[in-house]
Amino acid sequence: MTLRHTRPEARPAWRKSSYSHNDGDCVETAPVRASVAIRDSKDLSVGTLAVPHDAWTYMVDALKG
């Protein structure tokens, strides 16, 4: 799913992973309505993936676990 926004104030506030390298090879996330958008910052042409907040929380907790 590719997120498209026409109004500048509606653009997602992307956040880079704290585990990312300085070479631009990273994953970014942004809260979007009732989901979390995920993108690969080195190749924006592949679009974004959006998952529900509860699924994102479950995955992050499982990875920490």
Rank of each mutant, 00 (worst) to 15 (best):
D54C: 02
S17H: 03
C26T: 12
P8M: 02
V36Q: 05
V60K: 09
S41E: 12
A50T: 15
N22H: 13
P31Y: 03
D23E: 15
P52C: 04
I38P: 03
L3E: 10
S17Q: 07
A37F: 08
P52L: 02
E9R: 01
P12H: 01
L3A: 08
D25L: 15
A13C: 00
A50H: 09
A34D: 13
R15V: 14
V46E: 15
N22Y: 11
T57D: 11
K16D: 09
D23T: 15
P12I: 04
G24W: 10
P8L: 09
L3I: 14
A62P: 02
K64T: 09
Y58F: 04
A50E: 06
W56D: 00
R15G: 00
L49N: 06
I38A: 07
K16N: 15
T6N: 00
P52K: 04
G47N: 02
T57K: 03
L49Q: 10
M59F: 11
R7V: 12
D43C: 09
R39Y: 09
E9C: 04
D54W: 00
D43F: 13
T29F: 01
V60D: 00
S45D: 07
G24F: 12
K16M: 15
L63C: 08
Y19P: 02
V60N: 03
K42I: 13
D23H: 07
A34W: 00
P31W: 10
L63Q: 01
K16G: 09
P8W: 01
V36S: 04
M1I: 04
N22G: 12
H21C: 15
L49P: 06
L63Y: 02
K16S: 06
K16T: 15
W56F: 15
W14V: 13
A30P: 02
V60Y: 01
R11S: 07
R11P: 02
K64V: 14
N22K: 08
D23L: 12
L49H: 06
K42D: 03
R4F: 03
S45V: 09
V60C: 05
V27W: 10
K42E: 06
G65Q: 06
R11N: 10
A34V: 06
A13T: 08
E28V: 03
I38S: 08
Y58Q: 07
D61M: 00
K42T: 14
S45W: 05
A50P: 01
G65N: 01
L3T: 12
T57V: 05
D61Q: 05
